[in-house]
Design a protein around this nucleic acid. Structure first.
Lengths: 164, 164
DNA sequence: GAACGGTGGTTGAATGTTCAACCCGAGACT
DNA sequence: AGTCTCGGGTTGAACATTCAACCACCGTTC
């Protein structure tokens, strides 16, 4: 690999620095709201949220892992915590290999989601939607799409998969 | 607090999902490159990088903490690791309170930065600069600025502080 | 001078994530 | 049959971050 990589221009550097700022403060803000009001982090919330809109409120671990952008190990640990809290159960995937496991949202878990979703949406609005114009929102989406093509193309598939 | 918070529109949701994708995959990509090629994470790299462009290659802990978007505790732990690796030293801030401590980059630390910076820049280019047009880059900056005003206004000050 | 609050800084325990190893069971191939 | 590999899933240790407590020292106030 030849080392002809040029340093960033002034504009590029500025954009990068601002992006780094968002990368550090935005997840912190989202997590803080959830932790304060609901004692869960964003990853755990994602799990509950994804399960809540599923037909049987359940999903196989492996697919749930990619849907929430997490590793299997991370998911396994997180589900253990949610299980201990009584919000999800593990059960064997019906009609498949005995090794396939699915996580299923309990009634208490569903109630939890219903309870905390509005506060979360409010925080998302406050931090990213409200400060932006609708053109900004559209631009943000396309910019993120382009970045995702370089960092995690698989995420793009999962997004319009859930939207379908 | 009245619960009149509306759910996100289709466009807003799409933008948010894509942003979440970036929020999870981009730091992972940046960290992975640094970890693989240099055995440091992005936060540690930021410390080395900030120190390397300072007049005496040194900076007081408290100000270094805000410059790197981290808590004092996080910084203290990280500096301990970098110290153990021989890349930075702690020493008492000359000419001030005895409690003021400054971190100073060693020669080995400076050599390390020079060695690993190109690879890092290459990764930043690959993941965010190259996929975007120059208009995208400009737009990205302003969008991030608006978001930062809601999540961490202090970060905005520190950015144009370092650019001055 | 003694008590006070505030700031800079560190420490250790608790929490969450990563990493590598591991288990189990289903095919596939001999 | 037996062995092989592979994928889903879990586990525990290592690591990084957070959180709360703590120390040290300055400046103030009484």
């Amino acid at each position: 690999m030849s080392d002809d990589t040029p340093w960033l221009s002034e504009d590029e550097l500025l954009a990068w620095l601002h992006l780094v700022g968002v990368l550090t403060t935005l997840p912190a803000a989202i997590d803080a709201q959830l932790k304060r009001d609901a004692s869960v982090n964003f990853f755990e919330y994602s799990i509950l949220s994804v399960l809540s809109v599923r037909p049987r409120r359940s999903m196989q671990m492996a697919t749930l892992a990619v849907l929430t952008n997490g590793s299997q190990s991370r998911l396994s640990h997180a589900v253990s915590r949610l299980e201990r809290a009584g919000w999800v159960d593990r059960r064997q995937c019906p009609g498949t290999d005995p090794r396939h496991v699915e996580a299923v949202l309990t009634d208490a878990g569903m109630a939890k989601v219903v309870e905390i979703a509005p506060g979360h949406v409010r925080e998302v609005r406050r931090t990213v939607i409200d400060p932006l114009t609708s053109e900004d929102v559209a631009q943000l989406r396309t910019v993120c799409e382009k970045i995702l093509k370089a960092t995690g193309p698989a995420v793009l598939d999962t997004i319009d998969e859930t939207r379908r």
